[in-house]
Design a protein around this nucleic acid. Structure first.
Lengths: 161, 161
DNA sequence: TATTGTTATACTCTATAACTATA
DNA sequence: TATAGTTATAGAGTATAACAATA
């Protein structure tokens, strides 16, 4: 499993990976694909996640920390660097004078949109080797795993916030 | 796609994710699962990858840099920290007096073995929601994507080195 | 008193450039 | 000259603890 990144790690020598190994390798492949794609725009994975969650939200710093599962002090630095690049802005909250909401700038939005399109093309190309019926089957199976996992952990996969 | 980490991001509002979104979310879920599991052993993802590739190899520092796709100077620090913890050792090469091979210590091996077992249990539990036939189907589809991708990029998925 | 956000600090991880020792 | 590895340096990213301002 942890051998995945090296391009090795078959626990099965009969030209077929175990389900666990396969999933692990697949996840490394997808992360690496995303990482390379967004690096073209000088974005790290975490910066991309930041822009991604801001596509349909204007959370406070605090809410952002929960969304990204980071300490609030980490979010300060993350937003600082993104703001310095003109990708996001802090807007003082009108409700609570201690608080800010964070929003994408137009530059931030177009950057994340471009990066997302490139990534989606990468993944689509990866899946293109499967016949349509198989692609649908894969999609359905993955959805089922995700939906069940989300339900078991009390998360609404489809929430917009 | 990049919204995955926040637990949102349905591009489809009919209780079903697109294939690309599903794959992206699945990869984030698996990485987060691995990250949490190895954190129990005070390992980062990259430290885990280091131990993982050493499970069946004793590469030089240079080879390690290629395996992990890192600069050689990054590998120096990575191995320094692992060696300081007693997880790996540098052994001077007998072939080339400039060179070292890096090996797991018994402590490193048992640590990565434990972490791998935990992770595999996590993923297995995640997949347990699927009937056996579906699990097999998922496994076959994923294998096909990975094997094709590897072949297209000139990588032997099953190589031990 | 509790919460929001920042600052100070420390550590991991990463790369580039310059260096040493060996090939 | 070229290669293996380290060091110096700089910066992103992360967390903990202490703090200021506001609730």
């Amino acid at each position: 499993m942890t051998q995945a990144p090296s391009g090795s790690a078959a626990s099965d020598h009969g030209r077929r990976l175990s389900t666990v190994d396969g999933l692990a390798q697949l996840s490394f492949l997808i992360q690496r694909t995303l990482e390379r794609r967004v690096a073209e725009h000088d974005l790290s994975l975490i910066q991309t996640r930041l822009l991604g969650v801001l596509r349909d939200r204007q959370p406070t710093m605090n809410a952002l920390a929960r969304l990204l599962d980071l300490d609030k002090s980490s979010v300060t630095g993350l937003v600082d660097r993104a703001e310095r690049r003109g990708l996001v802005v802090r807007v003082p909250s009108t409700q609570d004078r201690r608080s800010f909401t964070v929003s994408l700038t137009p530059e931030g939005r177009s950057l994340v949109t471009e990066a997302a399109a490139g990534f989606e093309a990468d993944v689509a190309a990866m899946l293109d080797v499967l016949p349509l019926a198989d692609r649908d089957a894969l999609s359905a199976l993955i959805s089922q795993v995700l939906v069940t996992h989300a339900a078991q952990h009390g998360v609404d996969l489809f929430a917009t916030d």
